[in-house]
């Protein structure tokens, strides 16, 4: 806060998501250490980081499933509270309700968020939308099945449809493809990108897979606890910060992209910056060149080391 940035990125106006000075710790362990972030509507924002860096914690804060210790988190200018339909979520597992059919799983949102009269009046349009979402997800013939009858990849498609029918302001995804086989995983990545290109919804996608983040995202954030700053804490006692923030140029949603040299170089850089415990970047050397990137450091942190 003591280094007010002249950067327009530090202004919550016009940003869908805005985080300022967000801290989160569990007992003595600091997980998130002064996170500043802003995300524009329509962005596909990938968050990568080594295991234990707190990327899922950050997602849970955005979701409202947990509260930050300090700082503010704004969605569309308003502070976030408990989970609500403004935010959609796709977990790696347990996103679906096992006791409901696929169609009922997708329809659950409209059903829960409308009262009896609204549901009766709009039933037909909800049904149409659910049917068209199932079609988009290539699940049109599976509406009557139960989740346990579908493969893991199909279940995740249902979970995406279930979230999309609510038209959330932001779709949060927590390693949604992490438990899938590589081929299914790639298939779903391409599919998700196609849907994003049609709908341009804002996505916040957490993954530990750098390639996945680079392939999907228009912007990749690197969260890591491996860095140095001016504080006299031992290096493994401070929490994670955003240590890299990249704008990704996207030409085509083709998996060929994954095989270009540029892609490989960037993946290598990110791995070095964020994932190598022995490489400790100075806090003033972080690559935060994305136009929406900003941060406010306190003097101690900013002193470098």
């Amino acid at each position: 806060m003591t280094e007010p940035s002249a950067n327009a990125a530090a202004d919550p106006a016009g940003k869908l998501l805005f985080l300022e000075d967000v801290y989160k710790s569990y007992g003595p362990k600091i997980v998130l250490d002064d996170i500043d972030l802003s995300v524009r509507a329509g962005e596909f924002c990938g968050l990568v980081g080594p295991s234990g860096c707190g990327k899922s914690t950050l997602l849970r804060l955005l979701l409202g499933a947990e509260r930050a210790d300090a700082g503010r988190i704004l969605l569309d200018g308003a502070p976030l509270g408990a989970p609500d339909p403004q935010r959609g979520i796709v977990f790696q597992k347990y996103s679906l309700f096992p006791h409901l059919s696929i169609l009922d799983n997708v329809l659950l949102g409209p059903r829960l968020s409308s009262n009896f009269g609204q549901w009766r009046r709009q039933r037909a349009s909800f049904m149409d939308e659910a049917a068209s979402l199932l079609k988009t997800m290539r699940l049109e013939s599976d509406g009557d099945k139960y989740p346990h009858q579908l493969s893991g990849g199909m279940q995740q498609r249902v979970a995406i449809a279930q979230a999309l029918i609510m038209h959330p302001k932001i779709l949060l995804m927590d390693e949604p493809f992490g438990a899938l086989d590589p081929s299914v995983r790639e298939d779903l990545q391409v599919h998700l990108l196609q849907i994003w290109e049609e709908r341009r919804m804002t996505v916040f996608f957490v993954t530990h897979d750098i390639h996945e983040a680079l392939f999907l995202s228009t912007r990749v954030l690197v969260l890591s606890q491996y860095y140095r700053d001016g504080r006299t804490l031992p290096p493994d006692c401070h929490g994670s910060k955003v240590v890299g923030d990249y704008q990704i140029k996207k030409d085509a949603a083709s998996t060929d992209l994954k095989r270009t040299a540029e892609f490989a170089d960037l993946a290598q850089t990110i791995r070095r910056e964020g994932f190598e415990p022995t490489v400790l970047q100075n806090i003033n050397e972080f690559n935060l060149k994305h136009p929406d990137s900003w941060r406010s450091l306190n003097p101690e942190e900013a002193a470098g080391s």
């Binding site: 989970p83 996103s95 309700f97 949102g109 829960l112 968020s113 279930q162 609510m166």
Partner: peptide, 14 residues
């Protein structure tokens, strides 16, 4: 019952 299910239901307007 997984906690995720409950959070998910809340995001669906429950």
């Amino acid at each position: 019952i997984p906690r995720e299910q409950i959070v998910k239901a809340l995001t669906l307007g429950a």
